[in-house]
Nucleic acid binder design. Structure first.
Lengths: 351, 351
DNA sequence: CTGAAAGCGCTTACAG
DNA sequence: CTGAAAGCGCTTACAG
């Protein structure tokens, strides 16, 4: 009676049990295990449910079952910033592919007031995918306290932390080797500027690995870190950052014949700006990038780049995570996903 | 004692209460309203919490508070497919911007076995953003049963359904007018093929509105729907679809001087293919698109297009949704976000 | 087949 | 300031 007043209350299992003339147990079975009640009970309950508009509360279910049917992606930055990075979008697509069959949902979890660990505390998910995590981070501690499994993409491998990486160092080495094989000896490298401390600088490790790869290849060719033929810049990872790089490079007294960018987005920004400035690409200045985003093949000339298998990484990471959630053993806790070098028009023989 | 065995159990509020020598009430206050307990109690409880690694269960909190601190985005397709559409990525970015301050999380909710309404049933969120919903859909019914507020982007306006749209008909009209003002009279329109019934064909309404806009402009110029100067194609909304359109168009006996594509992605695909086929763009064939995705300015020539304010729509929709969740009245329940026509090189005077 | 009851882990009105 | 207890809305072992 008291309850009947509140017209706007959500209808609960008790309402339905009462309306249908069965117990809550029976109602629950009707929705989750119909075989355990009579056909008659099932009929009455589902009919009544339809009539009074009963929908089981997911939250209550989650608490009861200790399961959310959701995984989270821990973002190093706010959602709008993070999704500007096509690589992250690719990763999400990969997660989606893995979640599809198991009808898991994906939560995007940005830091709360700069704090990833606070975000982890509040995340209502069965597991987390993290980007560029290393074992020392506070967020890891919270995940362990909460006993919530996680898989790291592009993290620093360490014990007990499943992760999927690609060989960033090797990939960078390979593309620099390619550049050198085209005869280039005056080289500009555009690295990615990290904005501050963790969590923002999540992929410092990747940046460092790529730089190491570049330098290793250069060294093999007799070009040391401090060679006058090598100039290294840091720019924001965006079209604008690439454009800025173009301007700085053009001011060099000893103009490079190739610009090696750590990301396609920068390479494209740089290329567009160079073209605007009337420079012939690739004839006067060649360019290479990293990631193989969609745009890399759309611009003219296309960007020679390393394909970062974002989708594949997301897919594999999510599959591993679902295994962990199911408490199944992992075949391997560190998987390395292959990259490939995509040759397009932006890199040519030094003229 | 019995509990103490299970080393792998998550530590709960009871564990902490016991360990700290206070009640669960006190523990709860320590985390949510420290002012209500003594400084001493607060100190002991937080200290002990740290020591035994207590993190409050978000799920239990959600059930108790009847609040998730999360909104969901109902996707018309699987995550990986949906995110191929940059417009949807933009919308998510907009949602992120609105959610940032209120520390709401975003859930990506794809249909479950083709069923959006099933997805809505299971969604553990405080509110939903839907794409292209109309009042008759089953999903709407479920949202109402669950009393969960929602805001529709690109939906068909109707009573009691808050929505944010842009004037698609007008935008399409405007760009076709622009095309006509450049002297074009032999025109190919490439529409978006809908793959089947709802939920897949979520944006049929948008497609229809754009088509209506095109036709209205054409009609004003004396080009009726069945004019021999007008050919209409349907293609998948992708680079490949655009490329396919290019081939079909080139086989026309009466070759058009302009291709009006309903999306940039198709326009770009078409342009790249035309260029490959040796056609001069825009001199031999001009092109226009729709959406102004990043790539539209990156290709050469740039695509003349209508900027779809995806980010803005997401932002506004999420702000409205948060209002509804807070049970605050909406200033207006139907907002129209402005578009703008972006002129680039792909459209020129008919030669 | 059916249902009373305990449990999931919190919050909070209420009484002291 | 402090705590016992009811409540959030489900699931499920258990007894009948």
């Amino acid at each position: 009676m008291a309850k009947a007043h509140k017209r706007d209350r959500r209808v609960t299992i008790s309402d339905l049990a009462q309306a249908a003339g069965y117990s809550k147990t029976a109602v629950s079975f009707a929705f989750n295990d119909p075989g355990r009640i009579s056909a008659k009970a099932f009929g009455i309950i589902t009919e009544t449910a339809k009539k009074i508009g009963y929908v089981p509360s997911p939250t209550a279910r989650h608490l009861s079952l200790q399961r959310h049917q959701a995984i989270g992606l821990l973002l190093p930055q706010q959602v709008d910033t993070a999704l500007q990075n096509p690589y992250i979008v690719h990763i999400i697509q990969g997660l989606g592919m893995a979640c599809h069959d198991d009808t898991y949902t994906i939560s995007l979890i940005p830091p709360i007031e700069e704090s990833l660990s606070e975000a982890v505390r509040r995340a209502a998910v069965d597991g987390l995918i993290t980007l560029g995590m290393h074992a020392e981070m506070r967020a890891v501690e919270v995940m362990e306290q909460r006993r919530i499994p996680f898989v790291t993409i592009d993290g620093i491998p360490s014990d007990m932390m499943p992760c999927v990486n690609s060989s960033d160092e090797q990939a960078a080495y390979d593309i620099m080797k390619l550049v050198l094989s085209f005869g280039h000896r005056t080289i500009a490298v555009v690295s990615i500027a990290g904005e501050g401390e963790p969590p923002k600088s999540y992929d410092r490790s990747v940046i460092e690995l790529r730089m190491q790869g570049y330098l290793r290849a250069l060294q093999e060719e007799g070009i040391p870190f401090d060679s006058p033929d090598l100039s290294i810049y840091e720019q924001e990872c965006s079209l604008a950052g690439g454009a800025a790089a173009a301007h700085v490079i053009m001011k060099e007294s000893c103009r490079p014949t190739v610009v090696v960018c750590m990301s396609d987005i920068m390479a494209i920004g740089c290329q567009l700006e160079l073209l605007k400035l009337g420079i012939q690409v690739p004839d006067e200045i060649s360019l290479v990038g990293h990631d193989d985003i969609d745009m890399a093949s759309a611009v003219a000339p296309g960007i020679t780049t390393v394909r970062q298998p974002g989708r594949m990484k997301g897919l594999v990471a999510a599959q591993m995570l679902l295994q962990l959630i199911a408490e199944a053993p992992l075949e391997q806790s560190r998987v390395t996903v292959p990259y490939s070098i995509i040759k397009r028009g932006s890199l040519c023989q030094r003229s």
